[in-house]
Design a protein around this nucleic acid. Structure first.
Lengths: 190, 190
DNA sequence: GTCTATAATAGGATAGAC
DNA sequence: GTCTATCCTATTATAGAC
C-alpha cells in the first residue's frame, strides 16, 4: 500500500466539501470517509480528535486559501477600485455564483456554534480588515472604511443564506453588484 | 392526567427555541423532549412524522408570528418611514439584539437544506414583498423598492451570521442602523 | 394524551492485523 | 498508513399499558 494516496490538502479539501454541504452536525463520519476514500480508522489516524480535528484542518486551509485568493490581493499595490472589483469577482467564483454554501455559515450555526469561535472570528476580522485597508488607501476615513467593509462581509454571508433559502442564486449576483457599487462609490473612479 | 398540559402554540414555541439553537441536525429528540416536557412518544403523538413534522409546525408558527409582528404592520396605513423604522425595532427585539440565532438560517444549512425549501422561500418572499410595499407607497420605483427590500433582508440574515461568528452582537445593531438609514433615505423624511 | 419499555439503527470511536 | 472488526453510546421510532 502506498504511504499516502492523496496529499493532505486534497483530503482536507474533500472534508471541506462535505462540511460545506451538510454542516457540522450533518456531516457523518460515514460520509467524510466516503468523500475522502479513507476508512474511519485512517481518518482517526490523521485526525486523532475526530470531527473536531477535521474541522480545524478545514478552517486552517480555508483561512490560507482566503488569504491567497482574497485578503492578500486586497493589499496589493494597485488602484483600490481594481482590488475591490477583483474581490467581488473572486468571491462570485468561489461560491459558484451562490450555488455553493458557506463553510463558515455552517459552522456558526448548529451545535458547533461556539466550538470554533476563535478561528471564525479571526477569519471574519481578517476579511473586514483587508477590505477596510483597500478603502483606507483610497482616502476613505477609518470609520467609514470599517463600516463599509463590515457591511460588505455581512451582505455576502446574508446573500448566501437567502440564495439557498429561496433557491434563487440571482440574489447572490445582485448582492455582489450592490456591494461593488457601494465600494466603488466610496473610493471614486480611481 | 390532563388532556393537554400546554397549548400547542407553547409546545411549538419551545421546539423552535431548540431548533434555533441547535439546527435541524443538531436538535435531538431527547432535547426536544426535555424542552417541551413531553416524552418521546407524546411528541410522536402530536407530530407523527417526527422531527420533520415538528419543523413544519415551527415554520408555520414562525410565518404566522412574522405576519403579525412584521409583515402586516409594514402594510398599515401610516407613513412609510414609521412603518420601516418600526420593523427595524421589532427585528432587533425579536433577535434580542443579535444574541438569538435565526431559525431560517439554521434550516437553510445542514442536511435540511432542501427539505423545507418551499416554505422558507415563501417566508423570504413575503418579507421582501412587505418591505417593498412600504417603499412603493412612499413613491419609490418598483425596481428600487424590490432591490432595497431584498438588500435589507439579506443584510439582516448576514448580520446574524457574522454576529454569531465573531461573538460581537454589535455587528447586528450596526447593520440594522445601516438598513434603517438606507430605507429612510429612499422614502424621504415623510 | 401521556407514560415506560424496547426495538432498530446510525453514529462516534478504538484495537489490532497487515 | 490503511484496513477489518468491534464496541459503546446516542438516536430515531414504535408498541402497548394506563
Amino acid at each position: 500500500m502506498p504511504a499516502a494516496l492523496m496529499p493532505r490538502d486534497e483530503v482536507v479539501e474533500r472534508l471541506m466539501k462535505v462540511i460545506r454541504r451538510h454542516g457540522y452536525d450533518g456531516a457523518s463520519l460515514a460520509e467524510l470517509s466516503k468523500a475522502t476514500g479513507l476508512g474511519r480508522s485512517s481518518l482517526y489516524h490523521h485526525f486523532p480528535d475526530g470531527k473536531d480535528d477535521m474541522v480545524r484542518a478545514v478552517l486552517e486551509q480555508l483561512e490560507q486559501g482566503l488569504r491567497t485568493l482574497i485578503f492578500e490581493p486586497l493589499r496589493e499595490p494597485r488602484p483600490a477600485r481594481r482590488r475591490l472589483e477583483q474581490m467581488i469577482k473572486t468571491v462570485d467564483a468561489y461560491y459558484d455564483g451562490g450555488r455553493e454554501a458557506c463553510v463558515i455559515g455552517n459552522l456558526v450555526l448548529g451545535t458547533s456554534r461556539t466550538r470554533f469561535h476563535a478561528r471564525l472570528r479571526a477569519i471574519f476580522e481578517e476579511w473586514i480588515d483587508a477590505v477596510a485597508a483597500a478603502l483606507l488607501d483610497a482616502g476613505v476615513s477609518r470609520a467609514e472604511s470599517r463600516a463599509l467593509a463590515e457591511d460588505a462581509v455581512v451582505r455576502m454571508e446574508g446573500a448566501l443564506i437567502v440564495a439557498h433559502g429561496t433557491g434563487d442564486t440571482a440574489v447572490f449576483s445582485r448582492t455582489l453588484k450592490r456591494i461593488g457599487a457601494d465600494l466603488v462609490a466610496a473610493v471614486g473612479p480611481g
